[in-house]
Write a protein that binds this DNA or RNA. Structure first.
Lengths: 349, 349
DNA sequence: TTGTATGCGTTATCAC
DNA sequence: GTGATAACGCATACAA
């Protein structure tokens, strides 16, 4: 006959047990313990412990409007980049006394909409967004309503909001500079379908720009679907066309995986065909002779997102202009961008 | 002068706008739309749309005691197994109309305690737990309070709760059977420090049991820390001791990664030294000649966890005995468990 | 220092 | 069918 759902003691019961008022108990747990007399403080502490009392965040949020909840919208939770960022977000949230409500959209705008209104219904105080694609109406609406938003990695031109992510132009510059310095002359920029994902667009565009500026290099760009055999065919055609020394620049971790698979299937050895991936993955050092990558400071990005959000929350309605925080990648050079020594290569020490 | 935090319209405002009562609006959104007259229904719908009204889950949870929140405690959010399970959990939650509050403990009991009480304070209706190690008092307390719990992957003997995970004995059986069938005779079971993590214990014990039953095989077991060079030294010593054909059985994905690294550093080729890993990782097909794995049905496990939790929620206080749901792995055979042909091996087709 | 009274947005209970 | 009204658990003026 006991309650089917678990019974939590309330502030009132603690008050009764301690022979005090609700207010005092509220103060005890609301960080105003100092204002209570030692005797009362003691009694309340004991009563609470005895009853196993824990303040109900839900009720607390109802009154004060402070849910202490932050939301994060992740485009693909199975993507190691997203998870790594999320890890940073989660740490920062905890340190700041917030909890994190995570929603995975699976790159589907419909799910993004659903999750967005769900998060809204829990009155999250702010939102970190790794958008699925174009900005949904819901997102626009939430921004307009004054809910602090920070766009992570992917951003949306139409949306005035803070942004945190990689300096994509710099990343592509570093990639091209490295490949060029290593002696590769024919470059292929390989991406997942560019669509509306801003990092892909930016990397893609920067690649084009750099190529047009450097006559010593020539290149191609493609953004095939990664499933199926498109990548292999594409690589084969590129290599036939381009002549050597040629290299592939992979726009993200998924592409690196697909390209590595394809190159292997073609029986080509890494290094002889250059390979450089944006995003460091834990197996990149494993595939002989190691895959060169540009590692993103993922945790830092996550933490920065939270920090930015909390800054917005603090300044009240100060309506500061959107702030963009960009981070630099780190080059991890491995064998996949080292040309095998040839007769023409004697000058190399 | 407007509210610094975003203003959400309330049920009362909608009621006024629609010329109706709070009750009717509540009914409209509470799934009792049928009971309203078409005219009223229409008016409320319009008013809500006009105002951008969204029911406040927090207030809703306060009254009804139904937060519509499920919690998940993850031991390591950066572990691809955990993430994959979480993905299943998340999908199932959404399908069932629940939201998911995720907490990462980083395998730290202290953080587990913190997060646990946090989740409790949000009045989650149930908890999925990928425990850090030994059961914390908090966990015991929550279970005692009647909060539905389901242990995922790792379980705790002291805790009477539903369990979902891999059939570890079966997994080790399949691994040993496969290695044996492939001609390996000397086996090394390699694990992360066994400690109190139940899957490691179970796999470890089953390995021991099987080895003791099969005179044709001999083996060793070790659970070194994965950082540093311990794994390499250990492998080297094992191979020197064991004679061939020898194989390594990796107790989880992290171990597979470490073992592969170490084997590579030793200049040993996979297959010649057998390698089989529990947990499929996306790069296992990439490292030549491919790493044989036992893949877990991760998403299924996640969904099963949610299903089990909801079943508990449904049956009220029926206090059914704990239910254990075990799943079978799938063997993905690759080159790392294929012995190179030798003179003694002529009978192989 | 401590307590009283009121309201947060919603649902549940009861009337009409 | 529809609508007042009282909880839900807590925080916060305000009063003592």
């Amino acid at each position: 006959m006991s309650a089917p759902t678990s019974r939590h003691p309330t502030i009132l019961e603690v008050a009764r047990e301690a022979g005090a008022s609700k207010t005092s108990v509220s103060r005890y747990f609301g960080g105003e313990r100092e204002r209570l007399s030692p005797a009362l403080r003691q009694r309340i502490g004991e009563a609470a412990r005895k009853l196993g009392y824990r303040p109900n965040q839900i009720a607390r949020g109802l009154k004060g409007g402070r849910s202490r909840l932050l939301g994060m919208l992740v485009a693909d939770i199975r993507n190691s980049y997203s998870v790594a960022v999320m890890h940073g977000v989660e740490q920062a949230c905890r340190e700041q006394g917030y909890s994190l409500l995570v929603a995975n959209t699976g790159n589907d705008p419909a799910q993004e909409r659903t999750h967005l209104s769900l998060l809204a219904s829990y009155r999250v105080e702010g939102l970190m967004i790794n958008a699925a694609g174009q900005p949904t109406r819901e997102l626009q609406a939430m921004a307009a309503q004054g809910l602090p938003l920070v766009l992570v990695d992917r951003w949306l031109e139409e949306l005035e909001a803070d942004r945190v992510g990689l300096d994509n132009a710099l990343a592509v510059d570093m990639a091209i500079d490295h490949l060029s310095a290593q002696g590769y002359r024919h470059l292929l920029f390989l991406s997942e379908p560019v669509g509306l994902a801003s990092p892909r667009q930016q990397r893609w565009q920067r690649f084009e720009q750099r190529l047009s500026e450097e006559p010593a290099l020539d290149g191609e760009r493609h953004d095939p679907a990664l499933d199926g055999s498109a990548v292999g065919a594409l690589l084969k055609a590129f290599l036939a066309r381009a002549g050597r020394p040629a290299a592939v620049l992979c726009a993200n971790g998924n592409v690196t995986l697909a390209a590595t698979r394809a190159l292997q299937a073609l029986g080509l050895s890494l290094g002889e065909v250059g390979l450089l991936g944006i995003d460091e993955l834990d197996w990149c050092s494993l595939v002989p002779p190691g895959i060169t990558t540009l590692a993103q400071p993922t945790e830092t990005i996550g933490r920065a997102a939270v920090q930015q959000l909390l800054a917005r929350l603090d300044d009240g309605g100060a309506a500061l202009p959107p702030r963009h925080t960009l981070f630099s990648p780190t080059l991890i050079a491995r064998g996949s961008t080292r040309l095998p020594a040839t007769d023409n290569d004697k000058e190399t020490p």
